[in-house]
């Protein structure tokens, strides 16, 4: 769901060890990279390495049918053109219903396909959902090995709150990191004198830096990135001057990493 805000369709690359997704948004401003290791699943089996091209907008709509306590099983057969999602029916709300969303065609660029909704109080205690598969162009990323000048680690809830609040005030934000201070500010929101008075490091913020960094970013994207905050208690902001920001959420068996090109020029 976090990814679908940024990219409309992408390949889930599946192998024996993990599921990975990497996709750039249409404007080439942001990129999202996700990995979930096999141990992160209750059960996991991949007999053959294969890409699952998925329309994330459709997938998100299908996922909204699940409740948090539902266990979701994803299945794709060899040569199949659908991804099958099965929700167990622990939830009383869904248990009497059978939902079948079915559509065909491998072209993920087509508009949201028609679907059929079948409901019956007599059908089994499972929800079956199918979404069509397509192939997307993979992205090579030799770049993520980049060593960054700064790394700021902070509670993800704090980051979410900051970017959400600042997005009410403006369209972009400046992130400055010096030895003892990380300042995330709407440009010209305060006088520099006020800034000096308010400089402090909130609890749970760790700054690692080799060099002072000052970059400006679109808040719209940062707000979208921050929607992954529920996946991890901490978020890392990795920055060097004049290179894309890396916003990294690591969880036990994987990660979601978002890259954002900075604003450039004067």
């Amino acid at each position: 769901k976090s990814c679908s805000i940024l990219v409309t369709d992408a390949n889930f690359e599946c192998n024996e060890e993990n599921i990975m997704l990497q996709a750039m948004d249409n404007s080439h401003i942001a990129l999202v990279s996700v990995e979930i290791g096999a141990p992160g699943f209750t059960s996991y089996r991949c007999d053959r390495t294969m890409p699952l091209g998925v329309d994330l907008t459709s997938l998100t709509k299908v996922l909204r049918c699940a409740k948090d306590e539902n266990i979701c099983t994803l299945k794709a057969a060899d040569e199949a053109d659908v991804l099958n999602l099965v929700y167990d029916a622990k939830s009383a709300f869904f248990s009497p219903f059978f939902f079948a969303f079915m559509w065909h065609g491998r072209d993920a660029s087509s508009p949201f396909p028609p679907f059929f909704l079948l409901c019956s109080a007599l059908l089994p205690l499972f929800i079956h959902l199918n979404i069509s598969l397509s192939s997307q162009t993979p992205i090579t990323s030799s770049w993520p090995e980049t060593k960054y000048d700064t790394r700021v680690t902070l509670p993800s809830a704090e980051f979410t709150r900051i970017v959400r609040d600042l997005s009410q005030l403006g369209e972009h934000v400046r992130i400055e990191v010096s030895k003892e201070v990380v300042r995330i500010s709407k440009l010209k929101a305060k006088s520099s004198a006020e800034d000096e008075d308010n400089d402090s490091i909130p609890t749970g913020v760790v700054i690692e830096m080799n060099q002072h960094v000052s970059l400006t970013f679109s808040l719209k994207y940062l707000v979208n990135f921050s929607k992954s905050g529920s996946l991890s208690g901490e978020v890392q902001l990795l920055m060097s001057n004049d290179v894309p920001l890396l916003v990294a959420y690591d969880f036990t068996q994987g990660y979601i990493r978002c890259y954002l090109a900075p604003k450039i020029g004067d």
Binding site: L31, Y259, K263
Partner: peptide, 14 residues
Amino acid sequence: SKQQGRLDGFFTMK
């Protein structure tokens, strides 16, 4: 004023 940069050059489509 600043302009929005792009990721081209950092990531390439295969």
